[in-house]
Nucleic acid binder design. Structure first.
Lengths: 208, 208
DNA sequence: GCAAAGTCTTGACAGTCGTCAAGGGTCGCG
DNA sequence: CGCGACCCTTGACGACTGTCAAGACTTTGC
């Protein structure tokens, strides 16, 4: 990025920059209204551009949304890696992981209800499936890094497949998110307790 | 209202009958297209009536959809009760439960992706929340009947809250449903295996 | 400084949406 | 028979949607 602007501002840079700006506005709007009620005009209203510009940078609505999904992934997928790297005992990792989950539900609720929305839409709309499945696999891998590191620190082998570990944790997370959005004050803390109970069960029984 | 019926065909009966007919057409359409793309006209097209009749029986779109959710519940919520009642050993219950889950994903995929769709919509639309939360609680109770009966047959106490048990199983179910809808042939069987591994972990460790 | 390429706005299009009013149709009762 | 209540259709409304073309504004290369 350092010296790109001298003779003619590099078109590719500016192009991607605008696409990312629009993706950001789109993510904000989608997180607020949900997929069903989000229009391209509303997305443009939440940006500094007019509604026609969307079709200058994206072929159609799906291309924008799919681009958004991928753009979102690049920010979200390393969220728990610091937890993995900084923890030195299984208890420490478990507590830090649960705390990070709680923080995520509380502070990124809109973005995550959007994720669940889009994942569900992909059950109806084929065009969304490829991008959704790719992110789902990435999230599964992210969770698996936590679980396998947890097993390593505990000195016990894992007793679940990556898919199963992701599935159950995702279920708890989704439940907590719904509870949080409906005003429940205990749902999020309840999730933390559930994760504390569940994670040891993902490892083979201890020798003791 | 109850006294307005004469020898003439009881209005209340016919009224409810029509509402249920429309709810059935609506559920079929919603299961096919999803919430975002389902219009009242399309619902009417999938019934034997014209599009105007919807507003004769329902005040607006939300009243129809909420009625649908409740109508759907009445059919779905006892699905696993036969499993609970007919099983005499924990292994038998577990196998029958897993088989029923597999059957449900395979044969009721449309209806369940609709359920996940509506539940996610309730994260954005307050009007849907009350009905969704009511069903969610009913489903949690349904799952808990299975788990607690399983514990009873195994002679071991449960080691999870009803919410946690529902959360993790729902996560696995949703994962399998997405896999099934994307054409995966192993996703559903994989869920059965995961349930077999997970259910024993919901009970306190055996003495042995 | 000019022409061309790139960027953005505006306005319009063909549909579709939820909603509702006006009007037939049908049926049972007096 | 004819009246009135109930049931349903038809057609229309205003608003909103995704899409795109025409043109204006800006930036760049020469």
């Amino acid at each position: 990025m350092a010296g790109t602007k001298q003779a003619r501002r590099a078109p590719a840079d500016r192009y991607d920059e605008r696409r990312n700006q629009l993706a950001e506005s789109a993510l904000q709007t989608l997180g607020e209204l949900g997929y069903a009620r989000t229009s391209l005009r509303e997305i443009a209203n939440n940006s500094e551009f007019s509604h026609g510009v969307v079709h200058y940078y994206f072929a159609d609505k799906f291309e924008l949304i799919i681009y958004c999904v991928r753009y979102y992934k690049s920010r979200c997928v390393t969220r728990y890696d610091a937890v993995v790297e900084d923890s030195t005992t299984p208890e420490e990792l478990l507590t830090a992981f649960a705390a990070k989950l709680v923080e995520t539900v509380r502070e990124e609720a809109a973005m995550h209800r959007l994720w669940y929305d889009l994942r569900t839409q992909s059950m109806f709309e084929e065009k969304l499936r490829e991008a959704v499945l790719m992110i789902d696999a990435t999230l599964e891998a992210m969770i698996w890094r936590v679980v396998s590191r947890y097993a390593e620190l505990a000195g016990r082998p894992t007793a679940m497949t990556p898919a199963a570990a992701y599935g159950v944790l995702d279920g708890l997370f989704q439940q907590a998110l719904l509870g949080h959005l409906t005003g429940s004050t205990v749902a999020v803390d309840s999730m933390a307790a559930q994760v504390h109970e569940l994670m040891p069960l993902m490892l083979a029984p201890s020798a003791a």
